[in-house]
Design a protein around this nucleic acid. Sequence first.
DNA 1: GTCTATAGTGAGATAGAC
DNA 2: GTCTATCTCACTATAGAC
Lengths: 233, 233
Amino acid sequence: MTAPLPSVRAKRARPAPRPAAFPSRARRLKEQRILEAAEPVFAEAGFGGASMQAIAERAGLPKANLHYYFGTKQALYRALLARNLDLWLDAFDHIVPERDPADALAAYVRDKMRASWERPLASKVFANEVIHGAVEIGGYLSTKLRQKVDEKVAVIDGWAAAGKIAPVDARHLFFTLWAATQTYADFDVQVCAVLDRRHLTKADLARATDHLVAFVLRGCGLTPPAACPPRTA
Amino acid sequence: MTAPLPSVRAKRARPAPRPAAFPSRARRLKEQRILEAAEPVFAEAGFGGASMQAIAERAGLPKANLHYYFGTKQALYRALLARNLDLWLDAFDHIVPERDPADALAAYVRDKMRASWERPLASKVFANEVIHGAVEIGGYLSTKLRQKVDEKVAVIDGWAAAGKIAPVDARHLFFTLWAATQTYADFDVQVCAVLDRRHLTKADLARATDHLVAFVLRGCGLTPPAACPPRTA
DNA sequence: GTCTATAGTGAGATAGAC
DNA sequence: GTCTATCTCACTATAGAC
């Protein structure tokens, strides 16, 4: 579709910089503080738009300090991504064969919606990275994430074979669930605009969750027929 | 949640630059060509990561030429956004009271999926802009888009009142549909990774469309009860 | 470990010849 | 209208004093 662009993040290749080999407790805390400050900056400006200056100001530190701990902007960015990657996998734990499909899927959706409420910035950083080609996390996506999805797809296929759920395309079902839940974090501004809100409230998210759970359960044929009215011409 | 950041796009405020008052046909063609080149660059690098240099190379023109036509990088970016904004509204035309809900929603989903296939870069540019706070298009979102959504929400509420569709939250339904369809454009890399593909093919998108249409129709109670198996304990 | 001062580079934008 | 050469500045990154 599109000819490849030269990678955005490839200014000057530099060998692994200063960081210590044995991270002390104090060091970890400092790093944590910097990552905390970096998250909103990368989330709202993207990698290219973020500046070490802006991150340093947020962290209340001089710029040079960030370089002392992370070496380069890219390394800081990578560390931030790494810290959050597995965040999205936790919800998968609900999807197990022995559990009732409706309960499992409802819990999955609720967990993902909770994440959108509690960690919207992490979601935005991740979204940015994927939109821009997942240069840093491509490996993760095609190994750990794919394996986890394959595993959970098998669970859903098992439910379908047992007649416990409508025969959905489980992989695409996950794409739909990810998109539908993360949109409340990534595209919150658009949701706000349409709902005529200044900020999304917990009540807004609760309503969104109720909508989504009901929608998904019906979509998977997990709601009693009573709620399935006959189709009108 | 997060304190506001200084806008990413606010380096040096400059008065409206050179562009002519009466755009000739030739001028419009040149502008078109530049916008065409700008789309993949902004899509894959974001505003901050995109460079006028990269766009110029894609367009086969010297940098100065872009500045002659658009003045600033921001103006070029704005022009690109403006060109694509109404793209997403077309599909709404299917949602009219007199049409059968199932047909209308299926057609809506199919149109949006077609857009994800045909104009993925436009979708990415838009997604970037929204994630980064919709600084440029916030006005559009809270006026034209909101009005359009309100109008179509009324149609769906009308169907629900007439018992033609399950009582869904129409606004959140649209958020779900937007997210579920645009994810195939915006997050194509992730979808590829999970599906173990190098690129998404038309067949992949067709399969995704079939999944989504079926899922949405069931989710809206628009599929005959036969396909709604009883819930198992 | 911390921070000030600065080096060095790339980017947006412009001047001015053609 | 077009393009080369250049200006200016912001940004990443580092040197080196404390």
